[in-house]
Amino acid sequence: MTAGKLNTFVWLHPSQGDALREIARKNVHAEAAWIADQRERLNLGPDDPTPEAVRRKALSLRSGTWPGASHLVEASMRVRLAAPDLAGPWQPLTPDERETQRLAGRRIGTPNQHFADKIAVDIAPDIIDAARLAAYRVSEPVIAQLRAENLIGSGASRSRAARARREELQAQIYTLGCIAREAINRLISS
């Protein structure tokens, strides 16, 4: 885990995970080729250690020039969170809302989606907090509608029409994972 970052799992469709890993893999190979070029420029033999100056330069270039999956997802999430539909400004979470965010399991009304792949990425805490806040605030009206139409909870209507309406509304609910997947989609399709 990268210092100062939160290790986060993001559930994806296999095609998303494969595409993201391929971009990260190409960046690893590009960095290795750059280091090999630097070693060749310095006439270093195969057993000679790579000089600290070269390693430090590679480290400084990594996040911008050869980003790994964590850097790619974090940067893409920053862009996604700046989009008008998620940018806010949002009221901060109340203490009760913040406590509810800590509960295990899916939030009330969250779509029951199935993903076959997951990645572990290290993301800055401010991005995680901003995504959770945006997802919560964007989803509030939809969850209120689900409650108003008696579509969630123990006394929820179970008719076919009610299930269809619930699924329609649930598809509009945002989660941290949804925001990350949208960010990854933008990254891999660009």
Rank of each mutant, 00 (worst) to 15 (best):
M77I: 05
A58W: 01
P14T: 13
K118W: 09
I143Q: 03
S70A: 02
M1Q: 13
Q38T: 00
R147S: 09
E99Y: 02
R137S: 07
L72E: 03
Q170T: 11
R80T: 13
A19Q: 11
P84Q: 12
S154L: 04
I108E: 15
R21T: 11
S154C: 00
R78A: 12
Q38D: 05
S60T: 13
N150Q: 12
G45I: 11
E167W: 05
E40W: 00
N7I: 07
L187K: 05
R80Y: 01
A32V: 07
H71W: 05
K5R: 15
L59Y: 11
L12H: 08
D37T: 05
S70I: 04
Q91C: 04
S76C: 10
A104D: 13
I143W: 01
A69S: 09
V10H: 05
R158Q: 13
M77V: 10
A82K: 09
P51R: 05
N185A: 10
L133P: 03
L93E: 06
L42H: 01
I35P: 00
S159D: 00
P89E: 13
L133I: 15
Y174V: 04
G64M: 08
E99W: 05
E167G: 09
A180T: 11
A87S: 14
H71Y: 04
D37S: 12
W11V: 08
S159R: 00
A134K: 03
Y174A: 03
I127L: 13
W34E: 04
N7H: 02
A30P: 06
L86E: 06
P67H: 07
E99A: 15
T94R: 06
G17S: 11
W90A: 08
S76K: 03
D48M: 08
G17T: 01
G155L: 07
D85E: 15
L72R: 00
E52T: 13
P46D: 11
L93F: 07
A87R: 14
F9V: 11
H114P: 01
R98M: 12
Y136I: 01
S70C: 06
W66C: 06
R181H: 09
G4W: 12
G105F: 12
A171K: 03
E40G: 04
D126F: 03
E40V: 00
L20H: 00
I127C: 02
L72W: 06
A171S: 14
G88C: 07
A75L: 06
Q38A: 06
Q145H: 02
A180M: 08
P95C: 06
P125E: 11
A120M: 14
S190Q: 08
Q113E: 15
S154P: 14
E97K: 01
R106T: 13
S139K: 01
H13V: 09
P111M: 07
R25N: 08
V142W: 00
D126A: 11
Q38K: 10
P125A: 13
I35C: 01
N7V: 12
A53P: 07
D85S: 11
V73A: 00
A148M: 05
R80K: 15
A134E: 06
E52M: 10
A104M: 10
S157F: 00
S190M: 02
G153F: 07
A134I: 10
R98Q: 14
R80D: 08
G88M: 04
P46Q: 09
D48Q: 10
H29E: 14
G155W: 03
T110K: 03
D48K: 09
R163L: 03
W66A: 01
A148V: 01
